[in-house]
Design a protein around this nucleic acid. Structure first.
Length: 300
DNA sequence: CACTTGACCTGTCCGC
DNA sequence: TGCGGACAGGTCAAGT
């Protein structure tokens, strides 16, 4: 999925596009993707105005004037794509050659077979919730109830908040000090928002083997991991996130961070640091990319 | 308790 | 060309 940088990129895009738009209509037909019934939708969604778009960990929250919010988890293949009302807005060359906008292909195709929810606004624009694998979900709940969702009660601190210091980071990791570092980075209860891509990237940047046991890693290396993780997350947001396969932002555009990735999905290619062949293996039951020479495995 | 496995789904790729 | 299996960015629940 979409990990923190991808979800944050979607949030930034939606926050620019959605506020003040009023919901006219909705369409949905897959209860696991959107379990609310028609009556709730009618009462708390239709006619409501979008106030603000927020993010916590990998969860997006679209606050409405009805004091309800659309809470969304994109999981592996979810997309939230906004399509403006644009009849006859194409210039002559665009209309003629059909390639004026690099993402016309996606945006013009919506809704498609992966579309689970359609939200139509009064001005004729649409927001599409697409999700090929149907792992993701969108729920309409009272804004005040968001804090009571189990996930929200247990999720760890936001790594990009200013108060997420090295000491806090290490203290959080030590809650699972006997585990391998990769599974701890992926644990949303320890730190919010890190997924498979940024776990691999940050561990490579800090020269730590993903199977290393947390308590065996020198503090200086954990400090380095903190610094690298934050830099990588920030750079990825700047680049619009990573598109490994499905991910697109709120305007249907792909992210470019994969062009900067040094280890993820680079199996069999030379390590940028030492030239050794990058190996793909399994750690924490996830596909894991490692430079066997650069990344030291710390064991008890 | 901590870790692993399976489940949730669809699609794609790879080997036979 | 077709078929089976493995795998894909995430999280839960259940099992060991």
């Amino acid at each position: 999925m979409p990990e923190l940088p991808e979800v944050e990129t979607v949030r930034i895009g939606l926050q620019k596009l959605l506020p003040n738009r009023i919901i006219l209509n909705t369409d949905f037909n897959w209860p696991k993707s959107f379990p609310n019934d028609a009556q709730e939708v009618e009462q708390f969604m239709l006619g409501a105005k979008v106030i603000k778009v927020r993010r916590r960990a990998k969860v997006l929250m679209i606050d409405l004037s009805s004091n309800y919010s659309l809470v969304v988890h994109l999981k592996m293949t979810g997309q939230l794509v906004f399509v403006p009302n644009m009849p006859n807005t194409k210039s002559e060359p665009e209309a003629r050659f059909g390639a004026g906008h690099p993402n016309d292909s996606l945006v013009n195709k919506l809704p498609d077979r992966s579309t689970r929810v359609i939200i139509q606004f009064v001005d004729g624009s649409h927001l599409y919730f697409n999700d090929q694998r149907k792992f993701g979900w969108m729920r309409l709940i009272p804004t005040i109830e968001i804090a009571n969702i189990d996930f929200m009660k247990t999720v760890g601190p936001e790594p990009l908040e200013p108060n997420f210091t090295k000491n806090i980071f290490i203290k959080r990791l030590m809650l699972r000090k006997k585990s391998n570092i990769k599974s701890v980075l992926l644990d949303q209860k320890i730190i919010a928002g890190v997924g498979n891509i940024y776990a691999d990237e940050s561990l490579f940047a800090a020269s730590i083997h993903p199977a290393s046991i947390v308590s065996a890693i020198p503090v200086s290396k954990l400090n380095k991991l903190h610094k690298e993780l934050l830099e990588i997350l920030r750079l990825s947001i700047k680049k619009g996130g990573s598109t490994n396969k499905n991910y697109v932002n709120a305007e249907g555009k792909k992210g470019s961070y994969m062009d900067f990735a040094k280890i993820f999905r680079r199996e069999n290619l030379p390590c940028v640091t030492c030239g050794s062949e990058i190996v793909k293996t399994r750690v924490a039951n996830r596909g894991t990319h490692i430079c066997p020479k650069c990344q030291k495995q710390y064991m008890l």
